[in-house]
Design a protein around this nucleic acid. Sequence first.
DNA 1: CTCGCGTGTGGTATCGATTCCATAAAGGGT
DNA 2: ACCCTTTATGGAATCGATACCACACGCGAG
Lengths: 330, 330
Amino acid sequence: MATIMDVAKLSGLSKTTVSRVINNHAYVSEEKRTLVLKAMEELDYYPNPAARRLRGQLTTTIGVVVPKIINPFFAYLVDAIEQAAYKNGYQVMIFQSNEDRTKELSFLNLLKTKQVDGIIMTAIENDWKAVEPFTKYGPIVLCNEYINEPTVPIVRLDQFKGTYLGIKHLIEKGHRKIAYCTGGLFAEEGKDKDRNRGYQKAMGEAGITVNPNWIFVDRHTIEDGKHVLKNVLEMDDRPTAVFTGSDEIAAGMIAEANEQGIDIPGDIAIIGFDDQPLAELISPKLTTVRQPVDQMGEKAAEVIINRLHDENAEICHYELPIEVIVRQST
Amino acid sequence: MATIMDVAKLSGLSKTTVSRVINNHAYVSEEKRTLVLKAMEELDYYPNPAARRLRGQLTTTIGVVVPKIINPFFAYLVDAIEQAAYKNGYQVMIFQSNEDRTKELSFLNLLKTKQVDGIIMTAIENDWKAVEPFTKYGPIVLCNEYINEPTVPIVRLDQFKGTYLGIKHLIEKGHRKIAYCTGGLFAEEGKDKDRNRGYQKAMGEAGITVNPNWIFVDRHTIEDGKHVLKNVLEMDDRPTAVFTGSDEIAAGMIAEANEQGIDIPGDIAIIGFDDQPLAELISPKLTTVRQPVDQMGEKAAEVIINRLHDENAEICHYELPIEVIVRQST
DNA sequence: CTCGCGTGTGGTATCGATTCCATAAAGGGT
DNA sequence: ACCCTTTATGGAATCGATACCACACGCGAG
């Protein structure tokens, strides 16, 4: 491993001058600059990031914290962030918190020691109170996750509208007995609350009262979807449509319905959330609320890089549009 | 950010002693040790990794390079590695190469500067000749990818057997006109070659000659699957079964078949590879060759951590078993 | 002719850890 | 009583970069 000293020796100059060339400082003659560049080339030299970090330098690395990488939603989100960051010369490190608060905090600690220059959080397990202190070490951007906190940049989707449109679509299809099956709790803050509001509003506008038996919370997986459908089928008074919080849950329900010979959407209509590739593969094809993950990831990368370049960049909240993709399950 | 100096001051001892405590060195009195530990606790101190790295220390971080994180196969693999590493006190950094040789090399460079202590590669874009020089900076373990090189630890699946069993299953179902649709090229080294050998062997044993028109290479995506099925359907002499190299391709084919009203497996049987959750969600449910990703990831983590603890640990190649999961598509 | 400023270059302290070396007290063997 | 080893601790150099400060040169203004 060539060091800055090797470059200095080979070019017959001092470390200082070499460092100036590396960091594009003023006051270096064109002559020496080319000399240094040649030496760097020859030695296949590039600066040791550990040393730079120790000096508190930026290193064009941004961290992305995801809860679970096996969740395709996050995989696509990370991919979008990665692509956008790479275009701007930034490297991305992906960290999986596994929904573990301690792990999440340990990732945030990377900011303190400049392991990463900034962090994009695609979910937030700890209270914002616990996360906030880290913002003084580098920019933190929330992406997809939503909290009521104007001091942090947030890129998110209009979950309220997404849910509202989804429910409205079901109502337009003639459904009035609409179940609601989501991750998160019904009373929670942020993203889930917005979704709940969307559900309530759409139902309210149609003059439908919500049946609490048809509310399922904290459901996330394919298995959850299967169970919920079983439950629903056993009800005396059963809903004719189910709004779900993710394509996984919806796919689980459809798989179970196919298993039991239930007709979708004839016997029961199902709408998903995300628009994953999966949605087009199952039969019937899944009607779903499309989340523009790519745009969201791209925007998040853009926002954090802006803040990296300009510490005082304005703190904005971005809300991206969301739409219903109608296929065959409703 | 508390530094080692702060801890030294607070405990009334020298940096040296503090460092000794941190690194569990001998010759520290129990009395001072507790003093130091208390100070560390009080200051919420933990060593700056950048400084440690600069001194060439290990930092319990392993890097995992994947080609595409949106590929569920790799997402699950990474997840398995992450879990296993975390249990052993190791942190995992995920890097996406996007099948870009330059990017892959830039990740390997992290080894040089001790950004990561070791690297697990789940794919290899460059020639081994280009990768090999990096092994002197830290352990590199190949996971899933297979090359003919005894100097590097490899954890992989028995692709040969997997394919052989898959084809054999089709033959047992009475098929003799079997198409083969895979990623990779037909003549390539490593993983793909093994699969090809498996196909050839199973066909050979049944006395079937391979029809070159039924060989599709370099197919990876859902879209590819749709196209291949279209092609197949237009053939005068069409195969009655298709062996595919991934569940995505297979799912794409089945989606297209459903679209066109083709009966699976009646008109054409399809077998996948991987056994992703997807396989159980589509209808008909996908018969597929199950790759034990979890085991593979776990093993890879174990192998690299072993080598991290003991530089001279034996270099082994592990081959994990693989089996056919029969569902409805064959 | 000198002062001051814009340019160009190098010496050296610094970041936060580890580690070699020096020092010193305690204990054991002869 | 003396030497040697074991145990315990601190001082200072070191890793590879950056950045402050000092210095030197050339040139136009006063």
